[in-house]
Write a protein that binds this DNA or RNA. Structure first.
Lengths: 192, 192
DNA sequence: ACGCGCATGTAGCGATCGCTACAAGGAGCT
DNA sequence: AGCTCCTTGTAGCGATCGCTACATGCGCGT
């Protein structure tokens, strides 16, 4: 027999996978339960309510994403903001990270609608991303802490913007836009 | 007696206003009808279906936005990409354009979910924005047409990214991030 | 052996969704 | 006057939503 907590953990895995694959469109209780391979009744046994299940799944997803990012840009690595944008832009438009970015767009929009639990989730994830970016910003960048935070937020904004572009303009244009940003930022006076 | 077409036009105005104020969260048929001051039965008399009503309202909104943008950056004005980003960033984070950007985020996310009619709406609006930006890019920017399009898409991405940041990190941080972007882009070597 | 509590299935509640069937009012034409 | 068609209200359909009540099992402690 598997304990409820273990089953809950398994369900979280399945839910995270399902959300990454199908986004928030297929996120009704019954659809989530089917994705987790249980009845909706049991999903509400493992979790307090739908909100609880989604929060747990999103936390798992955020962790997965953090791992992937840390692998690409290990802790201790720092670089100027312009370079960081270029690297991050290339990274997040790659195939294996696209589903994360796409879901992230949906989460933010759900937050904009005031949907529970996405207001909280979006805020905490955005704050997490910003802090993460700050640790990768070169020491010189951003005179005081205020500037540093703003700069990190700006980096995040650019990356998110590309993800948004991906949704409505497709992968190809997004990739070349990502390249353009890199060029504009890193070689502003050398059009070579 | 007012003709159906006239009533439809009035309804479009009210719907556009309502969407800008309350976003897609309050966009059920009955809620839209209430916002337009008619019964849901009549809304479906003026429009084929919900999708038709939303499309009409979004077209109106896109037109309004285009007018506002054209007033700020008149036709014939051109500038380098970096400068355009800075100007657009400042512009779209201003109070009177924020509702448009917020709604735009929701529309793109609805498109990501495959919701009718937002897939079409998001695509056509994004394509419209990109073309608009292209006309404001300085002639030298972007060697061939391909580059120009990518550059325009990149500008759009940055602006959209700021809007997204606005949703989950608030107005204050977004404004300073917008300023940061301007600085990074326009004075990369002069930290003064 | 027996009772207690965790685990799980069945069935359904009340709300909301987009949409439609039907009837009636009312203006205008012949 | 009578007929027709545009307009509008009432009422409700079938689907889906998140969630819950209830019953039944099944394992474990005593």
């Amino acid at each position: 027999m598997i304990s409820r907590d273990e089953q809950r953990a398994i369900a979280v895995d399945h839910l995270a996978d399902h959300l990454l694959r199908h986004g928030l469109a297929k996120a009704s209780l019954r659809q989530l339960a089917a994705a987790a391979g249980v009845s909706d009744r049991m999903l509400l046994y493992y979790f307090d309510d739908k909100s609880d299940a989604l929060t747990a799944a999103m936390e798992r997803i955020a962790t997965q994403l953090a791992v992937q990012l840390a692998m690409a840009i290990p802790e201790g690595t720092t670089m100027p903001a312009a370079r960081l944008v270029a690297v991050a832009a290339k990274l997040t438009t790659q195939t294996h990270l696209r589903p994360y970015m796409r879901l992230w767009i949906e989460v933010v929009a759900a937050a904009a609608r005031g949907e529970d639990p996405f207001v909280t989730v979006a805020q905490s994830m955005a704050s997490g991303f910003t802090q993460w970016i700050e640790t990768r910003l070169e020491a010189g960048d951003g005179a005081d802490l205020q500037d540093r935070r703003a700069l990190a937020a700006a980096v995040l904004a650019v990356v998110d913007g590309l993800a948004l572009l991906d949704v409505c303009a497709g992968e190809a244009l997004t990739r070349s836009a990502a390249r353009s940003i890199g060029e504009v930022l890193t070689e502003p006076d050398a059009p070579a």
